[in-house]
Design a protein around this nucleic acid. Structure first.
Lengths: 120, 120
DNA sequence: CCTCTTGGATGACAGCTGTCAACGATGTGA
DNA sequence: TCACATCGTTGACAGCTGTCATCCAAGAGG
């Protein structure tokens, strides 16, 4: 069901490009995260058990692919945050960033363009 | 450091109104969450150990208050999500909701009003 | 055919989380 | 003063997480 934080690093690799062998996954995540191969192997098998990734045999090994889309993952994470903290609405979140001076002029411009496009 | 999900329910009660006795906290959270008193007691003491709440003696018991502001908590949770999933920027998050048809006309109107106010 | 390598499965383990019950000190009311 | 209620502290325990090492089967090379 739930994809943990470390697991999501593996998922991100697969969302960028798939299918991948475990070797390729390790090549992408071990160095940046400072993980050994053992760690990645366990993350992959936990993701398999959770049915978040699938595997097809390719000779003596597997090719792994996401079974959960990034869209769906990002959607449920975002919605969860909104529900927990902002009454499920988006505007209060944006207001929070604005109130905390976390918005650069560029952010504001991007948002403005976006909203106009949506409103259209 | 990190406030867990169950702990945040207790924090929300204290952010609404504080200081509170443990009795008052239980009155607010036990029923909605289906928790027994034991559960809440442990959550309070873990929050104390984490220095997320403080306590002052009042007779034979304590009055609890938040030491972490909701502002700060909400800020770090939101920033964390943005960093993990949206490259740290707000516009892609909003775009995601728009792309998934999760924005009601009211949401769009609220956002529009907000952006205009910010831009000013 | 035998050995070396490689990849997956498993076991291990500590720390955090959610959940609750039992204990012990300390007031409270009769 | 003595039993009773109350509140905080502890212990317990299962499940999830992050992290790694070890084992085993199966190919690959000689």
């Amino acid at each position: 069901m739930k994809i943990s934080s470390a697991e999501s690093v593996v998922m991100e690799a697969l969302w960028r490009r798939s299918p991948l062998t475990s070797e390729a996954i390790m090549a992408e995540v071990c160095e940046p995260q400072g993980w050994t191969e053992g760690t990645v192997k366990v993350l992959i098998s936990r993701l398999l058990k959770k049915k978040a990734v699938g595997a097809v045999a390719e000779g003596r090994r597997y090719l792994y692919s996401p079974l959960v889309s990034r869209q769906a993952y990002v959607g449920s994470e975002s919605q969860g945050l909104l529900d927990r903290l902002f009454d499920g609405r988006l505007a209060p979140l944006v207001a929070h960033f604005s109130d905390s001076d976390k918005l650069s002029p560029q952010d504001v411009a991007e948002l403005k363009a976006l909203i106009e496009k949506i409103g259209k």
